[in-house]
Structure formats: structure tokens, C-alpha cells
Design a protein around this nucleic acid. Structure first.
Lengths: 342, 342
DNA sequence: TGCACTGATGGAAGCGCTTCCACGTTAGGT
DNA sequence: ACCTAACGTGGAAGCGCTTCCATCAGTGCA
């Protein structure tokens, strides 16, 4: 059964629709008795006014932007989301933020279709999902501006991401400068489950730094697995079992770095005295753990991405300036100078 | 200038509005030339079809629920939000989630007004904000069902929260069972900046356990300050400076527990060998830190709250069953049995 | 008694779209 | 030559509201 309209209410209350509307809007000049009649009719029918009709009629439209994010178990999305919020606030909250979560990578396309279908959104921020050409077309056809926010740059203008290679270089360089010469890389498989070559790019930075310093790394020093603390733990165990274990580890994310640290401690060794560990991201956790890492200003990235999107929405034809987040080495307590025979 | 409508497009293209609509909907039976005319008119005018009019006309309405949250710097909101998402997914994503952030507690009322005004939302989840009677009336008047999700129970039916007193009791009891007799409490001032008596309730649980075990605590053992790691650090310093420092500390949140631990270590003492510390919440961080704490199943709370809200929205008159999250002691590495003279 | 004014009320118009029906127009069949 | 079907097209109706204008009854005043 369709939900009742003000016409139903008017009929039940024995008044005109104008009067009903007036009651609904707390307008003056409705007699108390009439008001009571209307109110009780509303109650009886369980009437709720349609927000859509109201918006159309008043012409007041609030605009929505969507953020499509993985079902964020990973802290980095949280931090980006915070930046997104901040950008929205700085824009006077003119836009509502609709949060879409993708539980599994496969369902991403389905979600996107639903979003376009619904047309609930004026613009879309897509975080850490590989946007296929087909999907781009879909969004363009629906003329929904979008910005991608991820670990990896597609080279497009509407993409906010750090320079992963540079980041990998910075991390590895730090270890090399500390005179480590046995440096392992712990990262995701190439590409990861979302189809991103993040790990590969950071690895390339690692290779590039190693090459620049003239250090050769055996293939066993490159350990790839699924993302997460657990997998990193196992990989680190493998590394420790090597005839010549590394003296330093570059983990492609802070979470994985923590996994490595736990494995090292479990083996009765100390960080950084025996093995140095550097991560990547600088999530909030890292501050507490005291992890040395490469900060990619996640919050700032979120901020920049949303700012870009809002610029696109509010100045449709204008030239939009894109800023990219900076990378920065943050030295804390999990790395130290290599000491031989100590 | 108002944005162009399909009438404008039709006029510019020299066709009828029906044809424009057909082009817009990729309907068949439009000749290629006509289609091209319409498309170019759309391009020229920068036309974008109104989603509101479309919704009204098609009758397809997607529904929105809002979540009003503090500008979540605190990890506990993130975890709750995850549960909220899960509940939404289990509901086939029939509802979109609009995220509202309150930057400062003072602006909460303003936000709420805007939300009601906008009428963008069918239901509202209010997290960790004290909902005044006035605000309840506002929401009721707008007939927006809402659920509050916070640390503290108001006794209302639409409130999901843990039993803080019980939690305080559990934490303290754990320390007492470990034969500690000098137990301090570190918490927020009563009430905290959001007007919540969370700290007071947990403190009451502490007092109750102490009384049950016949242990008397000096007033200096009760340390209250603003929320956060920093403040807890200072409070712990004060405790350590006491003639008879406590042998165990119950911090009302994990973050504050971490602050205490840092202060203890800074003073050259060890946790748990010299002083045991127990927290409250079991945020993700605590797993990494190895903190003993009282788990309040934050994610589950979020889940339950959203589930309750969705039940209210989908079965308006039905009897709704409310579940409350359970509390659970999680023993990790920051507490141990009291050893005198060791 | 008549007039102007006020307050309460009914309902048409209009918001921008979709959809359906009606109206050519053309091609194919007899 | 006529009829039918199919195709392309225009535009009215209607979605559920708000708002404005018209109406009507009542009131005060000359």
C-alpha cells in the first residue's frame, strides 16, 4: 500500500490540503481546533511527508557527495576519512557525505552501478579501488565527477596519491644511511587483492635505492604475501630462518611492520638493537608503537581529495589545481645504526 | 541563474520534452539525428537532470539514515562505525549512510537543527552526544526515529550502551583478585566535556568493588582530568609522587591506560612487574600494546544500534527487541598478581 | 445598514521529471 | 489504391509537496 499523502490527510481531517501543509510547516493562522484535527489525522494515517516532493517544491536541494571505501578495517582509511570530513567542514558542510562501503572487491562494480542508478550523489570519491575504464565511462556518462584517492597514481588528473616509488626509496635510503647492508622487503603480492600495484611501486623504490648504494640483495630478501599483520609475521619468521637473516626490514605498511616486530620479538631478538624495522603510512598506531616509518599524510590526502572534488563540483569549468601529499621520513624507535658483532 | 530543465533542452534542440527524457533514459525509438540534437543541446546548456524530480516522478526513493558522530579522533568511534556499516550491509544496503560530524560539542545542536531542517534522513544514530530533552522533542516533532549510541545509558529504550558501573566493577575486581590493595582510579572529570557521566559511573563500579572487598582507598587515589593520553600521563606522575604509590591502576579508557603506562615507564618502573594497569574499551590499539582491559564490544555496539534503528524504520509499530553489548574482561600483559617486597 | 479589514481556509499552479497515450508518417502487404 | 503495423515524436497527466491567490465569515467602525 502506498504511503498516505497530504490529500489523504486532508480528506480524513475534513480540511483542505493547504491547511495540512500549513500545520506541517508550523505556519501561523491555523485555528487550534483545525490543527488538532489535522494532527490526529496524521497520527491515524501514520502520515510522513515525502522529503522528495518537499525538496522539489521548495527548490531547496542539499547536495551529496559519496565516498566509496573498502569496509575499512585498515586504519589508513579512517585517517583519510577524517581528512575528507575536514574538507567538507571547511566547505561549510554544504554537502552531505554518503558513505558507501565495499565489503569485497568483486562487489565494487555492483556498488558503483547502484550508486549511479540511484543518482543520489553529485560527486564521488573513490578510495583504494581500481577504477576500470568501463567504470570511468559509467561515471562520465552519468556526469558524476569523481576523484580517486589511493595508494597509487594512475596519472590522471583526478587522482590523489603519494609517490610510492619515492616513498620506497626514502625508507630504504634511511636504512642504508644507517649502514645496513642486509635489508629485506616485506610487502603485498603484486598486484594486491584490489588490483593495485602499490607494493610493486614501493618495491621498485627499494630496488632503486639499493642499486644507487651499490648494495645487492638476494631474492630471499623479498617476501611477498597477503596484506596484514599475520601474513607479515609469517614472512618475518621465514626471514629469520635464513642462513643470513637481514639486519633491517622495510615493511610496505605499518601494520605489516608491526607483524614483523612481533615475530622478531617472539624469536627472542630485539628491535632495533638486533634488527631495524621501518614501516610505511604513519597510521595513528605507529605513534603509540614508536615505529619509524614514512609518513604519507593520510589525513591530508583525504583532505586534498575531497577539496579537489568539491572544486570540481562548485566550479564546473574552472581550472582546478591539484596538490599531492608529501612524503616524509619519521624516525622513531625501531631503527638504529647497524652495529656489527654486538 | 536557475539550472536548465528538460524544457530548455527541448526548446534548444527543437524537440519535445518526451524525446529529451527518452534520450536521457537511453530509451529506444529515438532516431540517431534527434538523439544527437538533444545530446548537443544538453552539452551546450550544461544540463544535469534533477535527481529530486526524477525520484518524485519515478517513485523510487532510496532511504537514508544519518550517523551523527564527534569528529572522530577517538578510535572507539571508528570501531562503532564499522559495526554500523555491517548492520547496514546485512540490511541489503537498503539505506544509505550519511555521516555527520560534530567538530565541537557546542555545535551539536546546530547540526541537529540542520539535519532536521534538511529532512534528508529517515532515521538518525547519535553517537556519544548528550541528547537534551529539547533535542528529543525536535526529533520527535519531525518524526525522525533515533537511537543513541554512547558510553552511558539514559535508561531510554532507544539507547545502546554498556553498563559502565558493571564494567568498573569488573576491572577493579580483576585487580583485587590479583591481591592488589592499593588501586588507583584515573578517569575523566565528572561529567566530561560532552556532558556524559561515563567516568562517574565507572568510578562507582570501582568504589563498589573496593567496598565489597573491604578495601579502603585514600582520596588521592582518585585522579580526574581531561580525556586523553597526555592528561593521564600527568595524573600518573602525581600518583607516582605519592608517599605510598598504588600498585595497580584502573584507567577508565585504553587511551588513558596507555598514558599511565608511559608515565610509569618514564619513571623507571615496569608494567606489570611494578605496577599493574587495566584499561577500558578494548580498542584495536590495545591488542598491539598488549593491554589488559574490559572489552565493551564497540563494533558490536555499533551493529546493535544500527540494527535497532533499522528495525524501528522498517517495522514502525512492531515491538522492537533491544540487545545490549556485553562486557568482558580481557587479560593481556599489563596486569599481574601483586608481589610484596619483590 | 454598509464598508473595510482581518483571520482562517480551500485549492490551483507549479517544481522537473517520467510515462503513457495520441498523432503523424512511412513502409509493407494485399 | 487501400489498410495495417511499426516507428518516431509531442505533450498532457501526475508524482507529493509548497505557496499564493481567492474566498468567506466575522469584526469593528462610521
Amino acid at each position: 500500500m502506498p504511503s498516505p499523502t497530504i490529500y489523504d490527510v486532508a480528506r480524513t481531517a475534513g480540511v483542505g490540503i493547504g491547511t495540512v501543509s500549513r500545520v506541517l510547516n508550523n505556519s501561523t493562522s491555523v485555528s487550534p481546533e483545525t490543527q488538532e484535527k489535522v494532527l490526529s489525522a496524521i497520527r491515524v494515517l501514520g502520515f510522513r511527508r515525502s522529503k522528495v516532493a518537499r525538496q522539489l517544491s521548495t527548490g531547496i536541494q542539499h547536495r551529496n557527495v559519496g565516498a566509496l571505501m573498502p569496509n575499512f578495517t585498515h586504519p589508513s582509511f579512517v585517517e583519510r576519512l577524517r581528512g575528507v570530513q575536514l574538507a567538507l567542514q571547511d566547505h561549510h558542510n554544504d554537502f552531505n557525505l554518503i558513505l558507501y562501503t565495499v565489503s569485497e572487491p568483486d562487489r565494487c562494480h555492483e556498488q558503483l552501478l547502484a550508486i549511479v542508478e540511484q543518482a543520489a550523489v553529485d560527486g564521488l570519491l573513490i578510495a583504494t579501488l581500481n577504477v576500470s575504464g568501463e567504470q570511468r565511462d559509467l561515471l562520465n556518462e552519468a556526469s558524476i565527477p569523481f576523484v580517486t584517492l589511493s595508494d597509487v597514481c594512475t596519472g590522471e588528473l583526478n587522482c590523489i596519491s603519494p609517490d610510492n616509488m619515492q616513498g620506497g626509496y626514502i625508507a630504504t635510503q634511511h636504512l642504508l644511511e644507517l649502514e645496513h647492508r642486509h635489508i629485506a622487503y616485506v610487502g603485498d603480492e603484486f598486484p594486491n587483492m584490489y588490483g593495485f600495484p602499490t607494493s610493486e611501486l614501493r618495491y621498485k623504490g627499494y630496488v632503486s635505492a639499493m642499486t644507487d648504494y651499490g648494495v645487492i640483495h638476494p631474492p630471499e630478501y623479498v617476501c611477498l604475501g597477503t596484506h596484514g599483520e599475520k601474513a607479515a609475521y609469517s614472512l618475518m619468521e621465514q626471514l629469520l630462518a635464513l642462513p643470513e637473516p637481514p639486519t633491517a626490514v622495510f615493511a610496505m605498511s605499518d601494520i605489516q611492520a608491526v607483524g614483523c616486530i612481533l615475530a622478531i620479538r617472539e624469536a627472542g631478538l630485539r628491535v632495533p638493537e638486533d634488527i631495524s624495522v621501518i614501516g610505511f603510512d604513519d597510521v595513528q598506531l605507529s605513534r603509540y608503537v614508536g615505529l619509524t616509518t614514512v609518513r604519507q599524510h593520510l589525513e591530508q590526502s583525504g583532505y586534498l581529495a575531497m577539496q579537489l572534488l568539491l572544486d570540481m563540483l562548485t566550479t564546473p569549468d574552472g581550472v582546478i589545481a591539484r596538490q599531492l601529499p608529501r612524503l616524509e621520513l619519521v624516525v622513531r624507535g625501531t631503527t638504529q645504526r647497524y652495529k656489527s658483532l654486538v
